[in-house]
């Protein structure tokens, strides 16, 4: 704990007005909070992107091709909290995402 305390910014160092730089959530690895992990099956996935829209943490990785069409490309385990919304929202007949017990 002591070490953590040392890293905190002082009033003189902090940006004023409670400004927080955008995109800093990426550096906050909430992946360690996970008790269940989503497992994505590339072969079953039709890239409907419903999981991508639904994920509250932006942890569904996507890529675009030259026609700017997007495809699911996996899960960002550094930030995924394991809430399971992606697995729940994945269309039943597809079931490309399943939740598994996290092994730690």
């Amino acid at each position: 704990m002591r070490k953590e305390e040392d890293k905190k910014l002082t009033a003189a160092e902090l940006p004023i007005g409670g400004i927080v730089e955008a995109g800093t959530a990426v550096n906050f690895h909430t992946g360690t909070w996970r008790s269940q992990r989503p497992v994505w099956n590339r072969d079953k996935c039709i890239s409907c992107l419903i999981c991508w829209i639904s994920c509250p943490d932006g942890s569904i990785k996507i890529v675009s091709d030259e026609k700017r069409t997007s495809f699911v490309d996996g899960i960002d385990y550094d930030n995924c909290k394991g809430c399971g919304i992606c697995a729940k929202e994945c269309p039943t007949r597809i079931s490309a995402i399943t939740m598994e017990q996290e092994k730690k």
Binding site: K8, L9, L14, G17, G18, I19, V20, E21, A22, G23
Partner: peptide, 13 residues
């Protein structure tokens, strides 16, 4: 230079 304004700020800051 996007940023967040008015976020939560607890005991530590």
């Amino acid at each position: 230079r996007p940023y967040t304004l008015g976020s939560i700020d607890l005991q530590d800051y």
